[in-house]
Design a protein around this nucleic acid. Structure first.
Length: 298
DNA sequence: CTGGTCTCCTGATCGC
DNA sequence: TGCGATCAGGAGACCA
């Protein structure tokens, strides 16, 4: 499930295929995967399949998919990936649970994956496909002017989170640490895997209300988040099933998970069996010994 | 405003 | 071997 390290891995592997190139052809294979300005639900909800009346003309959709644009840069904030064209058009991608991009160099015959929802062809003949079986992901056509505002609504990027900033954001809420880490408006980029891994590394119980965390604890948390994400990024992210870079290379950080997916198995630090439960609607794994309760007096 | 729950979707896995 | 039930979860909608 793509979180920050996986999305950044995809971004880096797509960059050489796209930056400086022109999209000569863009095709949308499944309408409801792309949201364009003027679509219902406040502009940024997912368009529902029954809103056919509002669908833009075919030619407009190609333009929203950056046809005939020269690609200037690939950006990322949290789990969102942005393809920026030199004329100001931006295509924003959320990978959701199973979304990925696949690049094929010209001349190489590649099988078109199932659930390919969009295909781009660049001026050197490379084909890029957006594939997302579960369709929790999607594409948003926006303008460069809107990108900054949209990303400002998210919290700071988790890869470079500042400890004091994080403390400030966490003290405003009484909900659990796990729920707060999953909230992209608090911190952008952490999902279920790295929330659990970060809590373990910081020796913090994911059930702790975040307003009761001490500055020293949020400092440890911020450092843990950065370390976990950076380590994962070095290994190309975690591949549980779907994640791969644009060349199809899987990540390997899943082998280093200390807690995620290891419920009942011995804690790597103390050896006692790891606890499992459901917290913030998500499967959660932690060690009650190493991630003990709040210190006395809090 | 806050925090909790529901919903979307497909594929893997499991029990019978 | 088949088949239904269950589970996985990012993020917006929705509700108390």
């Amino acid at each position: 499930m793509p979180e920050l390290p996986e999305v950044e891995t995809v971004r880096r592997s797509l960059e050489p295929h796209l930056v400086g190139r022109t999209i000569v052809r863009a095709v949308l294979h499944r309408r409801d995967v792309l949201v364009v300005p003027g679509d219902p639900i406040g502009g940024f909800g997912r368009q529902r399949p029954d809103s056919r009346a509002t669908r833009p003309p075919k030619q407009a959709r190609r333009a929203h998919l950056l046809e005939s644009a020269r690609i200037e840069a690939l950006g990322r904030h949290g789990k969102e990936l942005a393809i920026l064209a030199s004329d100001g058009r931006v295509l924003l991608a959320q990978l959701g649970m199973t979304g990925r991009f696949v690049a094929n160099r010209p001349g190489r015959r590649a099988r078109i994956p199932d659930h390919t929802h969009a295909t781009w062809t660049t001026d050197d003949g490379t084909r890029i496909r957006f594939v997302d079986p579960r369709r929790f992901g999607g594409l948003w056509a926006i303008h460069r002017d809107e990108l900054e505002a949209r990303w400002a609504r998210l919290g700071p990027d988790a890869l470079t989170i500042d400890p004091a900033d994080l403390h400030d954001r966490l003290k405003r809420s009484r909900r659990s640490l796990k729920a707060a880490l999953l909230d992209q408006r608090v911190l952008a980029g952490v999902g279920n895997i790295y929330a659990d891994e970060s809590c373990f590394l910081a020796h913090l119980d994911p059930h702790r209300p975040t307003n009761l965390l001490r500055p020293s604890e949020t400092r440890a948390l911020a450092e843990a988040v950065r370390r976990v994400l950076a380590s994962s990024l070095e290994r190309g992210g975690s591949t549980l099933r779907d994640h791969a870079d644009a060349a199809g290379v899987a990540g390997s950080y899943q082998a280093d998970h200390a807690v995620y997916g290891r419920g009942g198995q011995p804690c790597l630090e103390c050896g006692s069996p790891l606890d499992t439960g459901r917290l913030a609607q998500r499967a959660t794994v932690w060690c009650r010994t190493c991630q003990g309760d709040a210190p006395a007096g809090s």
